[in-house]
Design a protein around this nucleic acid. Sequence first.
DNA 1: AGCACGCCGACT
DNA 2: GTCGGCGTGCTC
Length: 602
Amino acid sequence: MNRTQIAEVVFDLPVAHPFSYSVPPHLTVVPGQRVQAPLGGAVRPGVVVGLRALDTAGVKPLAAALEPGPIMSRSQLDFARWISAESCSSLGSTSAALLPPVLPGEPMPSACEWSGNRAETPELFVGADRLARVRREIEAHAGGVLLLTADIATAADWAASLSALGPVARLDSGIADRDRRRAWNALAAGAARLAVGTRSALLAPIPPPAMLVLIDEHEAAHKPPGAPRIHSRDVVLRRAALEGARLLLPSATPSVEIWWLADGGRARLHPVDPGSWPAVSVADTRGMLRADPLTPALGRAAYDALARGRRVCLLVSRLSSALACDDCGSVPRCPECGIALAFSRVEKTLACRFCARRDAAPDTCGACGGRRLSAFGWGAERVEHALRRRFPRARIARYDPDAMRGARLAKQRQEATGADIVIGTRGALRLFEPASLGLAGFVTPDQFLRVADFRASERAFALMWAAAERVRPDGQVVIQSQHHDHYILRAVIDQDRAEFYKHELRFRAESGYPPFRRLCRVTARGRSASAARALADTCVGRLRDARLTVYPAIAERRGLAWRILVKGRADLPAHVSRALEDGGPADRRGRGMIEIEMDPVD
DNA sequence: AGCACGCCGACT
DNA sequence: GTCGGCGTGCTC
């Protein structure tokens, strides 16, 4: 029997284990190198993750090396392993998502190892001058810089702006494969010092001493669909520690997780330049908003702004799914979980998304006995109609960049750019520079406060803060709300972030939400309702056996899918993977499929 | 994820 | 009698 070298190879598949191949005598491969290997009748690209000596029984040979050397150093491969474990994604899918395209004929610069002997404290920049300060830090930094954004458009802006400081390697998918790959090589070879990208750049080789920058750390877009299911914030925190890199986090409204780190001295909050702040007021809507989306206060503010030739942005939300009392403003909440109960108009029920609680919707308000309970909806269309009647001579446009793409979006954008009044969702704020608007108005923000999601308050706070930053110092922000004393509103009125985080952290601690506990969502799908149910029951049983906090499964898609929420500590991914075995993002066991989503953001 | 091998309905 | 539906299971 021949003793040869065996290469362990992972592929872009939802399969947890590597596949073994013999290394033909004419080939030399090392861990971290990309290869071609036969699998399931076809030759597919994969990554060598290990080598060992063994007999060759029943093993096929590698077909070819895709590149002359490893694309990942030992440090990068270990780090990819960590990301894979932490996100319950396969190592193959993780590597495929975080490595540049293969280009035959390109040279392979050697990828360097990370030293990480002195861990730096992550740094928060939250003030009005945060981007200018981060830019100065980048300018002053001697080594390489990796700057990550949540979307391609922002990456393009940064690449353009940083090019004044030297060659910029763009690593996001907004540029051609060839250029992206060359940018990666330029970095590894030390020919470029500045790198800009989105999450696909998380593994990029940066010349030491490295500096990492994550723009708008709080953005949910830092955890886009697709493997690996992990927020870029968690990745850069780890990478900075391993690599001994400085990590800069500019964000007007950091995530509660990051603020908590700063509270505990594990992140450093740089001195804050508060910047200018408009007058923020709450317009009481109790008993209003039946026939008109504008309270007298907001209507007057819009009139004044238009009369002074200033622009107006009205923020609306997508449809509400919670119930509220029109008389006292109270919202039915889950007694167990503390979150607003989701209202289903069709089924006439109130349901909690976290525990499986589901009750018939009441006829009267539990707090004041009022009989007017409604899930109200002032969507963009209805608001626009009402405003056209009220301001017949104003140029009014709707803008909802998250709901459309392509030519329709471009057209809408153009109309919105020239409009006096823009009605839009959160993406509409991107149209406006800081301190440029005459008025920002929130039509029915109570819907944000009521969304059946514990992160809703964080998002509402971020949105209101972002709106206020875009209003001129002599302009106004008007928030129409029944909750005039809500801590989010107080924090925005007083321009006091700490006020928000103090309350939010107390709520999270009391209810056992992140950052104090970790969450995982397991989805069990089946062909039939009974198969799905059985699979879900199996999962719940195994997770309970692992002594994790497991909430009862909630049916979706008429019983074809079941959502299971699991709570645990920092080591939750390992426990969930072990409990469900081979748990990939879409592990098929028998007749069904399991999906594991660590730290869900929605 | 692909892709092959499996056992039950309408066609030349 | 075969062609083909997709349900199930494997890929080194």
